[in-house]
């Protein structure tokens, strides 16, 4: 599916693009990620195939932050269901709840992405809930500290005034 997304080969220009993309995937499969990025750095390779190839390389290299950054940079210019689904996947792997929710919402309105959005709804929902629970915990802690400090301050002031 990733190879198919590189586009057709109706012209020599498209053929060059397809070769570069395929070479990038081959380099990624072989673990030569530097060559994988180099393969799609030349002019003539479309922005989307370049983004997909680079994301694929970074993802397989285990640099998930960079892979997500590639997806988000490309998605800022043009919507793509495959990139969007990878963005959801990477956000979940990185425990980035806000990004996961944002990308899932976008995926749900993308064409031909219903199956993917349904599949990711569960994991994203769990991640968001855990993140919300953690944020609620932090807010609760700040309230307790504030109220505790206030009560202590009032107690100190009242006790320090002495008996009337």
């Amino acid at each position: 599916m990733l190879v198919a997304l590189a586009g057709g080969a109706a012209s020599s220009h498209a053929s060059t693009r397809q070769d570069a993309f395929a070479r990038s995937l081959e380099h990624t499969a072989a673990g030569d990620y530097a060559a994988a990025l180099e393969s799609v750095s030349a002019e003539g390779v479309g922005a989307l195939p370049r983004a997909r190839a680079r994301l694929w390389a970074f993802h397989h290299a285990g640099l998930l932050d960079e892979a997500l950054a590639e997806a988000e940079a490309a998605l800022a210019l043009e919507e793509d269901a495959w990139l969007r689904e990878r963005a959801v996947e990477l956000s979940v792997a990185l425990h980035d709840a806000p990004a996961a929710r944002r990308h899932l919402t976008a995926l749900e309105s993308a064409e031909d992405a219903e199956r993917a959005s349904v599949a990711w709804a569960g994991p994203v929902g769990e991640l968001v809930e855990r993140d919300e629970a953690a944020r609620r915990g932090e807010r609760r802690a700040r309230w307790v500290v504030g109220i505790g400090a206030l009560l202590c301050g009032v107690a100190l002031a009242a006790l320090a005034r002495g008996r009337r």
């Binding site: 425990h95 993140d131 629970a133 953690a134 609620r136 915990g137 932090e138």
Partner: peptide
């Protein structure tokens, strides 16, 4: 647990050290 609920990951827990 009021401030660090179940399922909190290690990097998330580390950010809550001060207030928690």
């Amino acid at each position: 647990a009021l401030f660090l609920p179940d399922g909190t990951t290690l990097d998330r827990a580390a950010t809550q050290v001060r207030w928690g």
